[in-house]
């Protein structure tokens, strides 16, 4: 049953049906993608020659933790407050006026 209806034509039709109303968005997205890819490709990125290879310890979690609690501790604290505020706001908005 299923195989019988699953012809190439139908696949194409359904793809067409999916994209037809979205043609404008698609064109814009592809345009944007092309621009970004071309830009990336033609840019000379300044990178280190070699990613530091340390088979013993691949993890850099320790380094990240050190950074968070030393150099970036203030953004961290601010972020915590933002998260708290967001949480309260989200709960308030999602809760409604309490009549239900």
């Amino acid at each position: 049953m299923l195989n019988k209806h699953f012809t190439i034509m139908q696949i194409l039709t359904s793809v067409y049906k999916f994209f037809r109303p979205r043609i404008a968005g698609m064109i814009v997205a592809i345009l944007f993608l092309a621009i970004v890819i071309i830009s990336i490709g033609f840019t000379n990125w300044n990178t280190v020659d070699q990613i530091p290879q340390n088979p013993m310890d691949q993890s850099n979690i320790q380094g990240i933790g050190m950074l968070i609690f030393t150099e970036f501790v203030i953004p961290f604290e601010i972020l915590s407050i933002v998260l708290l505020a967001t949480l309260m706001g989200a709960i308030y908005m999602a809760k409604g006026d309490g009549t239900e």
């Binding site: 968005g25 814009v28 345009l31 944007f32």
Partner: peptide, 17 residues
């Protein structure tokens, strides 16, 4: 909102070009 988003992205792309 989506139309605005489309316009913004189109505008940015064209501007870059």
């Amino acid at each position: 909102v989506q139309n605005y988003a489309t316009s913004v992205v189109t505008g940015v792309s064209l501007l870059i070009i």
